[in-house]
Write a protein that binds this DNA or RNA. Sequence first.
DNA 1: AGGTACTGTGGGAGCGCTCCCACAAGTGAT
DNA 2: ATCACTTGTGGGAGCGCTCCCACAGTACCT
Lengths: 351, 351
Amino acid sequence: MASHGTRGRGGRRPTLEEVAARAGVGRGTVSRVINGSPRVSEATRAAVEAAVEELGYVPNNAARALAANRTDAIALVVPEPETRFFAEPYFSDMLRGVGAELSETEMQLLLIFAGSDRERRRLAEYLAAHRVDGVLLVSVHADDPLPDLLGQLEIPAVISGPRSSAETLTSVDSDNFGGGRQAVEHLLARGRRTVAHITGRLDVYGAQRRVDGYREGLRAAGHVVDERLIEPGDFTEEGGRRAMTRLLERCPELDAVFAGSDVMASGARQVLREAGRRIPDDVALVGYDDSAIARHMDPPLTSVRQPIEEMGRAMIELLLNDIADSRPAVSRDLERRHAVLPTQLVHRTSS
Amino acid sequence: MASHGTRGRGGRRPTLEEVAARAGVGRGTVSRVINGSPRVSEATRAAVEAAVEELGYVPNNAARALAANRTDAIALVVPEPETRFFAEPYFSDMLRGVGAELSETEMQLLLIFAGSDRERRRLAEYLAAHRVDGVLLVSVHADDPLPDLLGQLEIPAVISGPRSSAETLTSVDSDNFGGGRQAVEHLLARGRRTVAHITGRLDVYGAQRRVDGYREGLRAAGHVVDERLIEPGDFTEEGGRRAMTRLLERCPELDAVFAGSDVMASGARQVLREAGRRIPDDVALVGYDDSAIARHMDPPLTSVRQPIEEMGRAMIELLLNDIADSRPAVSRDLERRHAVLPTQLVHRTSS
DNA sequence: AGGTACTGTGGGAGCGCTCCCACAAGTGAT
DNA sequence: ATCACTTGTGGGAGCGCTCCCACAGTACCT
């Protein structure tokens, strides 16, 4: 009921119809102009644009959404409590990439936390109401029902970190396999002979792929993979400590450790210290994630960096594709629906 | 799982009309039920609710927005680059309060950064299109054109930290006057005699109020305010350093300093150290904001805490009021449009 | 000459709601 | 019995767009 508009007649916001009247054209033509259709002559376009300018016309979004059955909004869903969101640079990096890519478009980004049960219920309603055209899902746990819900509702969605090699949702991932391999190759190249690996939780697909990369790195260099050198961790510091303890007992001769995450590397470092092994002199250590921990560790930790910001950009790109495709029923290019971005080894003094 | 909700198969979503048919009532009645109108008999309500459940009906938001001329969304506008948003706990605290209060309602929160010129242009368009019912403005600089734009567009808005005592927008603030006074009273109560004050930028209203509180604290205790003890800073660490240097030159006999922000207190601390003054033995130090800096300073800094989360809640409360009032033209209760929340002194070892 | 294919344009028919007026039925006072 | 309310209900009339069909005009074939 508000009255507004920079130069609105009588305070009401001008409608498309009024613009059409002023420009001396039909409604359809104005619609074509403001939506950038090419099927409009130059002269007409100019006339309409002038009328838009004079009246200070701004399209009514609700009417648009209703008529076109779209919302021009996508949601970034964070299935974590807010505190983690602010604490971990992963999310802000991701948000930066997403925001940058999205600013090229008219799309709007909604940030939705779904950490608590209550928030999740709200989210489910939200999605059921189709209030967004698509969803970006970051940091999803293996048993999360959210991806399936999205599938059922047929809402385009892109997930960061596929849940398996048979991920049904469009996904973006970093090259965990390549990252694992890079870590091993780096250690071997620096003259290490016995490289152990502390894995992440193996029900996380990415962790599994890092193990695969580790194996491949050894094999490609002509080494035989010694299973005793692989010890499962769980992404926690304590898990890293336990794993490192076992590895030292089992293979005291090891001279390098590749940990599946910086946090586990930190746990491993403590155990190595206590055992009197110097880093990197006696044992070289490589982590994964290139997080703040890596930079602040003593000694600074060599780590495999994932291009999080680029992953964010890639997610948007894929999602916009999916959204565009989902309107006319176009067969989707399945090969292009799983992007994998390269990792990079950041060398510091721990190796 | 029973067959409610989630019509699978991308099929059409049920409309209000279909719910009405199923429940054997008219469209208007269903609308009344889903909007919680009291003018519906118990029996009818139950029938409609059953139909809603059976069909898995969810209102179409766009249609609602178009017909009712509202969006059920409000924007939290942060006129800062994203990096600051993530770096400062101020914003996450605020967001927590806002989110908590908002989760009681059907309203949706949009987080909008307006740090760059480009982002600001986008925001202006966004607001012109009336895509939100109201706006929360945090951390606004004195010369920011945003508040005026909001006024012109007649969009309800609440600002955190009024720009002056004559703020036109609805505002929420912490009691800067009381906070300043508390700091001084605390220092005097602990036996200090000569309390200096490093102010914030005096074109920031809140900083000015802290100075007023400082004066009042001294006066109320029977002290004469010595203007030589007041030195302007600019909220930066370097500014704190400069101010402290001057104060020491001018009044070497001072035995307490109240800094208008923790960051400036940190600068002051360095200068005091270099001058060989011990904290708190020789000089007691009190900051403002109770930020992470305060907790991590050596020695931990006594500081005045602002109830940021509660401020967020209060902002939502006021905004929702404004939005409700702006629909029927009700005269607003001007007295209630400027909330001031109490501050609290957090005592640590620096005083 | 007619046929075929475009390009550019106007406007009808909705999209799914809310608002509001009309009206039936019930209640109590006259 | 009438009147004056109140309560509950149905449904018409939009809200401001997009989609799509119809059709005039032009161009280039047979």
